[in-house]
């Protein structure tokens, strides 16, 4: 029973992490291409698709922990257990139970925000150019929130999801 639960958590984490990473990568590329088009670059759909595919591979998680994809997975791996603890605490009181649905998305968004803040403090420039500006930051945090939401959905019992 315990093993089945662990497998379920791992499955949910991997699926949510991959989805969050893909969305973050897509928004990363979109932000960069939008900025280029703002200064006159003519970018076709094929150019954009090719760039997105390149970036998905270029930013992908690897054994190099400073890769953006690796950092996303590390960040979510820290954030989701904290969210689980907070969820456990929140459900114990009626007054705080209402925030329970927001905890995993909030944890995902916070994980990405922390990555961006720490990398900026380390390098003193945006290490991840697709996250530049408040819109770029929000877009990446949105991807983290989506990962959290998906994790939450996948962790629900199947009858509850139905």
């Amino acid at each position: 029973m315990q093993a089945a639960r662990l497998v379920r958590i791992a499955f949910a984490f991997v699926i949510a992490g991959c989805a969050g990473y893909l969305l973050a990568s897509f928004l990363f590329t979109a932000a960069n291409l939008w900025r280029l088009s703002e200064v006159g670059a003519q970018i076709s759909f094929a150019d954009a698709a090719r760039t997105f595919w390149f970036d998905v591979r270029g930013l992908a998680p690897s054994l190099v922990w400073t890769q953006y994809g690796s950092l996303i997975f590390i960040g979510l791996a820290i954030a989701f257990p904290i969210a689980a603890l907070l969820r456990y605490a929140a459900l114990r009181a009626t007054s705080t139970a209402k925030i329970e649905p927001f905890l995993y998305p909030l944890a995902g968004a916070t994980a990405i925000a922390t990555i961006l803040v720490l990398s900026f403090q380390t390098y003193e420039v945006y290490a991840f150019a697709g996250a530049r500006g408040w819109l770029g930051n929000l877009a990446q945090c949105f991807a983290g929130a989506c990962a959290g939401y998906l994790f939450q959905v996948l962790m629900q019992p199947s009858e509850a999801r139905a």
């Binding site: 960069n32 280029l36 090719r50 390149f54 970036d55 270029g58 150019a129 697709g130």
Partner: peptide, 21 residues
């Protein structure tokens, strides 16, 4: 720069789809 470049970003992403323009 940055529309046409032979380089990649430090993150591994593309700076631009174009090496020449």
């Amino acid at each position: 720069w940055p529309i046409a470049t032979h380089g990649l970003d430090y993150s591994g992403a593309r700076i631009s789809p174009f090496e020449t323009y």
